[in-house]
Design a protein around this nucleic acid. Structure first.
Length: 423
RNA sequence: GGAGAGGUGGCAGAGCGGUCGAAUGCGGCGGUCUCGAAAACCGUUGUCCUACGUAAGAGGGACCGGGGGUUCGAAUCCCCCCCUCUCCGCCA
């Protein structure tokens, strides 16, 4: 949620910035400003009446104490009238606030100055590419075929037991998954992130705080009996660890990481992009989260992308860093970098990480504040990144490392897997 | 799931219908003392909203887990929900 103060002070700037995200904020902003004014005046009136009301009730108290019951009763009649007025004003105020909030919540985060306009992934900017793309023989297989050949992933059993998009990993495939998770967690803790194991279900407040609600409601699995949402990413529980917290400026930066299963309904997805491991309803991911001082957040974003790049180098995968254009960025983000690995048999780049700075957008929603050096209350900045999402890493590893001798395991993983190839 | 107890300011903990934003202790901040520090003493100390003020701040309003109700008046009484603790049941 964009802090109201910014909208008040520079509405036209906000409109102009949001246009970079292809978001026409014009009417929303002006409606908000109008409601803001209405809210203020209503509240002013309501406060005045409340003050009167308070005074009167106190008078009644002292009259009763003084034994002047008659006078007190007269006052009671007066009070009844004011009370009714206060109640009406309060109701109007609540309604105005509700409307205003509804509009505020619909505004996406303001993109950073260095985000370029654009409407689709085609407009994203490739920051750099690294690693060499392997030349596979013509008989090379895509990972879904390799999965069958080596008996390490079963989509078939997954569909029987649960449904499409819920694969089973098996044997060395399962071990490889576990190895990747441990490797990513170890690297994250080495980099100073504190490891958490979060709940996989969260309540409504948490889902709202990080921006999943209200707009992405349909993308999450929901447990109506208890009003819980299955997390689409560990970002949700991790960031919410600090919901409603008031920190000291010396507490920053705060670095958290977690492995979790992630659940996404992926409503509306179809076609060849969803084949094999490319898009799943349940997948594993290690997430890194940082809370930072506003002045450091963009530098921290770079630091986090370096961490991701480091992981990909260690896995010996060809990858590229992509800066997202306005139109491809998420609702909550101010600046996002994606990392894509090249999956050699599919001959395409697969997104394996997304690292974003949410500036004060989430902090505002979740009331994550701190006192700065001057004792002023301010909103913190929140950031997160996948480090990394497993399925597409798995896909690229299998495809790129295939040979007649089997699947080769990168050096960095061998201490975890205990084997150097899948024969 | 059943029975009981409880949720108060950064923390601990009083208040149980009026003048209570809330005693007291601890902590924090400022000061006195000191070469300096500790101790002691004195002062101060929350959040949010706000058509006054350039600002510091002043004035007003709201907030005692969340929501509703009773009452002229609620932290205090009643109802619903959430959470914590104890006991019982069930269970990885």
């Amino acid at each position: 949620m964009i802090p109201l103060q910014i909208i008040r002070e520079q509405p036209d700037w906000v409109i102009q910035r949001l246009a970079v995200k292809n978001f026409d904020a014009n009417s929303l902003i002006y409606q908000i400003l109008e409601l803001d004014w209405k809210r203020k005046s209503t509240q002013f009136e309501s406060d005045e009446r409340s003050a009167e009301y308070r005074k009167l009730t106190q008078e009644i108290g002292s009259l009763i104490k003084a034994g002047q019951a008659g006078k007190a009763n007269d006052r009671k009649n007066e009070v009844a009238k004011i009370k009714e007025e206060v109640r009406n004003l309060q109701e109007r105020l609540d309604e105005i606030s509700r409307q205003m909030n509804e509009l505020l919540v619909r505004l996406p985060n303001i993109p950073d100055e260095r985000v370029s306009p654009g409407i689709s992934p085609a407009d994203n900017e490739i920051v750099y590419s690294e690693g060499s793309i392997p030349q596979l023989p013509p008989e090379a297989l895509c990972h879904w075929d390799l999965a069958v050949k080596y008996q390490i992933i079963s989509f078939e059993i997954g569909s029987k037991v649960t449904g499409a998009g819920f694969p089973f990993y098996k044997d060395k495939g399962a071990k490889l998954q576990r190895s990747l998770i441990s490797f990513f967690l170890d690297e994250a803790t080495k980099a100073g992130y504190t490891e958490y194991e979060p709940p996989l279900l969260v309540n409504e407040d948490s889902a709202f705080a990080t921006g999943q609600l209200p707009d992405k409601e349909g993308q999450m699995y929901f447990v109506p009996q208890d009003n819980f949402y299955l997390i689409p990413t560990a970002e949700v529980p991790l960031t919410n660890v600090y919901r409603n917290e008031f920190l000291k400026h010396t507490d920053f930066p705060i670095k958290l990481c977690a492995y979790s299963a992630c659940f996404r309904r992926e409503a509306g997805s179809y076609g060849k992009d969803v084949r094999g491991l490319n898009r799943l309803h349940q997948f594993d991911k290690v997430e890194i989260v940082q809370l930072s001082l506003p002045e450091n957040s963009f530098q921290i974003l770079e630091e986090m992308t370096e961490h991701v790049a480091h992981l990909l180098r260690k896995l010996e995968l060809p990858f590229r860093k992509v800066k997202l254009c306005g139109g491809d960025m998420s609702f909550t983000s101010a600046l996002t970098y994606d990392f894509e690995v090249f999956s050699a048999a599919q001959q395409k780049w697969l997104e394996v990480s997304s690292v974003s700075n949410f500036t004060e957008f989430q902090a505002n929603r979740m009331k994550l504040r701190f006192k700065d050096k001057n004792g002023k209350t301010r909103l913190a900045h929140t950031l997160n990144g996948s480090a990394l999402a497993l399925p597409r890493i798995m896909a690229a590893l299998l495809e790129n490392n295939q040979s007649s001798q089997g699947i080769h395991i990168p050096e960095a993983l061998i201490p975890y897997t205990g084997f150097d190839s899948i024969p």
